[in-house]
């Protein structure tokens, strides 16, 4: 069964792939992101987290697709907001 799925390109990504993507996002200095989680779903990998710019999100997707072209990737990465705070914390 697993073999047939693999031939059909539907084999679920394994632990090693998850680790490889995680390390790629950290160790590639064009990315250097440690805060992106890599989660396996049934037939794809979901990249989740928040980054400081839209360019970084695009670069993450580009790099992962380039390095793992056979893996379906879903990107759910947001931009971290940078508005001034509207409340302060009073520490008494």
């Amino acid at each position: 069964m697993a073999k047939r799925d693999a031939e059909a390109g539907a084999e679920p990504p394994d632990d090693y792939l998850e680790a490889a993507i995680q390390r790629l996002l950290t160790e590639n200095t064009e990315i250097a992101e440690q805060g992106i989680t890599v989660t396996r779903r049934d037939h794809s990998v979901v990249l989740c987290g928040e980054v400081e710019s839209a360019q970084r999100r695009e670069e993450i997707l580009r790099l992962v697709l380039e390095r793992f072209p056979q893996v379906p990737v879903t990107v759910d990465i947001g931009l971290i907001r940078t508005q001034a705070p509207t409340e302060v914390e009073e520490l008494r």
Partner: peptide
Amino acid sequence: VRVRNVAHPVIKQAYSVFHLH
């Protein structure tokens, strides 16, 4: 001692402000 994690992805704003009384 009060401890606060001010990592930007945690506070989700440009900075947090604390008033020490």
